[in-house]
Amino acid sequence: MTHFLHMGGYAAFVWPSYGVMLLAVVLNIIWARSVLARSRTEARRRAAIQGDSE
């Protein structure tokens, strides 16, 4: 296991690279979900206002 984590002496470059990609994947998911949730909330709010005025 330590041999694997050592990455033949390149651990300081390999693991941060994978870490950066993981971070990008997680942030992309969080951002996209929050953008979609915000659009939904906004659209619901508008629909409710329109429903009241009718």
Partner: peptide, 14 residues
């Protein structure tokens, strides 16, 4: 696709 749905909703909310 998730972002596209959000963008479409934002434009079409009326």
């Amino acid at each position: 696709l998730m972002r596209l749905r959000a963008e479409v909703l934002r434009r079409e909310r009326a």
